[in-house]
């Protein structure tokens, strides 16, 4: 009896570990090829070639970069606060990447199906900024400190707007569970929340770009102003971890946008044998938008970002919640 229970437990544990490993591998591959895709797409937009030396069409470039960064010397300046300096990139990466576990890619195809999935992702993204703040602070460098400060300012202006945008989705769906949110969308027009929640989607997408510190909101690392911002003093693999975190953050935010606003796995019709087709189509489209924005827009100034967050996005988000609530009350 006890043995049987243990066996059952073991199998469960093995399953979970296996799933987790697969998830990590898939996420890291996505991160690696997202960098490649970004370089290629931006190169095409800017009339360049992009990476084309390592492997066919430069397809092995991400691995070459990774190897290079791993074998680089990891310089730690004397004046840094070492424990914080060591741990900051990992906080960033873990918080940015862990959200993938909660995204339902297909009906019940989700690593951890918890009831407060949406809240959990918000919490993680909030925590992720600690990595950047601590990196900026512990580096004991003036540029890095300014980068960290900017991140702090940016987080308080965008987390709220993003939460408000997602709150109206929760109001519509009546659940924090991401799978339930997708299921609730099946009844709305085109099986997506985009049309009733157009304001929410707008607010969420801008906040998501800001959340990932991407152009035009890449203030914490603004290379033309602060050299490299919060990771000025980092080198080698630690430096790369911040990049991994940024791209993992993009992946999570895109997946969240697909799940909450674009109907997740649901599509206009079912594609046989390719269950993830619609999810990944939408997902890659949003990732492409991130890259597209980067190639097009200049950078905001620090105080203008705050102004945009507090004066435009948060009122819009609040109004959207209000409208959604009235909508819910009447119908």
């Amino acid at each position: 009896m006890i043995e049987q229970l243990l066996n059952l437990l073991n199998i469960e544990i093995v399953k979970v570990i296996l799933a987790a490993v697969i998830m990590v591998a898939v996420t890291l591959l996505h991160v690696a090829y997202l960098t490649y895709a970004e370089r290629k797409i931006i190169a095409r937009m800017q009339q360049r070639l992009g990476p084309n030396r390592v492997g066919p069409r430069g397809l092995l470039q991400p691995f070459a970069d990774m190897l290079k960064l791993i074998f680089k010397e990891d310089v730690i300046p004397k004046a840094v606060d070492k424990p914080t300096f060591w741990v900051a990139p990992f906080i960033s990466l873990v918080c940015a990447g862990a959200g993938v576990a909660l995204i339902p890619i297909w009906k019940n195809f989700v690593l951890s199906n918890i009831n407060v999935g949406l809240l959990f992702i918000l919490a993680l993204s909030g925590l992720g900024s600690y990595g950047i703040l601590l990196a900026g602070w512990s580096s004991n460098s003036r540029y890095a400190l300014l980068g960290g400060l900017r991140e702090g300012a940016q987080v308080i202006s965008y987390e709220i707007a993003m939460s408000l945008a997602l709150l109206s989705v929760v109001l519509m769906a009546g659940s924090f569970n991401l799978g339930d949110i997708v299921n609730a969308q099946l009844n709305s027009p085109f099986k997506i929340y985009l049309i009733p929640q157009i304001i929410g989607f707008f607010v969420f997408m801008i906040s998501a770009v800001a959340e990932c510190n991407r152009t035009p909101f890449d203030l914490p690392e603004a290379e033309q102003e602060l050299v490299a911002g919060y990771f000025t003093e980092y080198s080698g693999m630690r430096f790369a971890l911040f990049y991994l975190a940024e791209y993992a953050g993009m992946i999570v935010m895109s997946a969240l946008a697909v799940t909450c606003f674009l109907g997740g796995w649901a599509g206009p019709f079912d594609i046989p044998y390719i269950p993830f087709f619609w999810f990944f189509l939408k997902f890659y489209f949003i990732l492409f938008c991130y890259i597209w924005i980067r190639a097009t827009l200049p950078r905001y100034r620090y105080d203008q970002v705050m102004g945009l967050g507090w004066k435009i996005l948060i009122p819009l988000g609040l109004a959207n919640v209000f409208l959604t609530a009235i909508f819910k009350l009447i119908f």
Partner: peptide
């Protein structure tokens, strides 16, 4: 100037 303000694409168009 555009690159300083963050617009990357203008930079390469001009160089072309």
């Amino acid at each position: 100037h555009a690159l300083d303000i963050g617009a990357m694409t203008v930079f390469l168009y001009c160089f072309r």
